[in-house]
Nucleic acid binder design. Structure first.
Lengths: 217, 217
DNA sequence: CGGTTAATTGAACGCATTCAACACGAGTGG
DNA sequence: CCACTCGTGTTGAATGCGTTCAATTAACCG
């Protein structure tokens, strides 16, 4: 019984072999424009999605109009694991997107059922870890630390010099439980401390990795 | 294909039939005193636990000493689903506890593997929903609303007049991402508005359900 | 180039925290 | 039965971090 990747993997929710295979065979291909809906809040959760290209954002709108962003999903990530009968968060294409969509029942019926179930369980576990980190972030870290964590996570995903940020400040703010102004202030502050550098608003580079990691703690 | 309970169930993570059966057969019985550890932070996650009696609390301690409480688990709830190879949160007995512990591999090897896997997946989904609610709570609700939500959740679990709170103010604060003083203030405030009533510090009764629900939103 | 949206900056406010003092309750021993 | 203590919870006053409101600047696109 091989234990698969025990390594600390900083990327998001990447499925195991068997799941990828199932997606390739059963997956319906979908292309989405910017800011279009993958599934709606309170929508029936009967599909899994795999991101092939672009970035997907999950978000939840409260009755009085406040918004909480749940996560950002990149190519290779699985979306829609936040299961139960209905979605608590909506999913939208942040950028132009290409997805594979698979009906859950179809995935279950797929040959090698146990392996697929286990793979989903594994991916779900990863998703839960991410959620737990998010809880700690929102519950016990200040604005500076939240923004630093966010930048670090982005930078770790693309360790090649410059990092592109597909999301705007409002999305960052709603993910981090802050306002757009506070996010902006923290960014300028981090840049002032020469920890990161922004050649443009949607692109940055880490200057002091250890300082950033220390803040993200 | 019966869909099991589609009803809005306000309780925590209750396992399906097959899982309960598996726990009954394979589960090692454990009794724990107050404030003893079920498993430690960063401990190997190779067990599932089912609460039979008492309340279990999960919590995470950051390097600089800040604490975030993840959840409180009541009899019938499953603990240790927050999987991945290692636990991100520790689990401790909040009160004197009685648990069933099952090795994950043993559970997998149990006859009717697929059913058990699916049951775990279902329980995990419930846990994820709870986490998502927690994220919204911490990210987008103020102190009053957080405390109100917490009381409401407790009250819904025991709809019989008086509600017992096994956790202290510090635990509440660390769960809600607040300080102990703020929690205390909000409680007196809610009592001042005659929404809840505290005959003693660890026991309360809801007076205005709709008002409480409106705040918890 | 204007027109529009997104992002930054500034100043004042307010909510939650911090620090400190006090109250309450349970357990112990005189 | 009261005095004492220790842990827990409440209350008060002052501070500060993040928000709010408003104005300015930068980026994007015709």
């Amino acid at each position: 019984m091989t234990q698969a990747t025990e390594l600390a993997d900083t990327r998001n929710i990447c499925p195991a072999e068997s799941l990828i295979e199932a997606f390739e065979r059963l997956g319906a291909h979908r292309c989405l424009d910017r800011e279009t809906e993958v599934y709606g809040q309170d929508g029936l959760a009967d599909m899994f999605y795999r991101v092939l290209r672009g970035v997907v954002r999950t978000s939840r709108l409260t009755l009085d109009g406040r918004r909480q962003v749940g996560a950002f999903y990149y190519p290779g990530d699985l979306v829609g694991l936040e299961t139960g009968p209905r979605h608590r968060f909506a999913a939208e294409a942040l950028t132009e997107c290409e997805l594979q969509a698979v009906r859950r029942t179809a995935l279950r019926a797929y040959a090698g059922e146990a392996a697929v179930d286990r793979a989903i369980l594994h991916a779900t576990a990863r998703e839960m870890e991410r959620l737990q980190e998010h809880v700690v972030l929102l519950g016990r870290r200040n604005a500076r630390e939240r923004v630093a964590s966010f930048l670090l996570a982005l930078a770790q995903r693309a360790p090649s010099g410059h990092v592109d940020m597909p999301m705007g400040r409002q999305d960052m703010a709603d993910y981090l439980g802050l306002t757009i102004e506070t996010v902006s202030r923290m960014l300028t502050q981090l840049q002032g401390d020469a920890i990161v550098e922004f050649p443009s608003t949607r692109r940055f580079q880490v200057r002091k990795w250890n300082a950033l990691e220390a803040m993200a703690a």
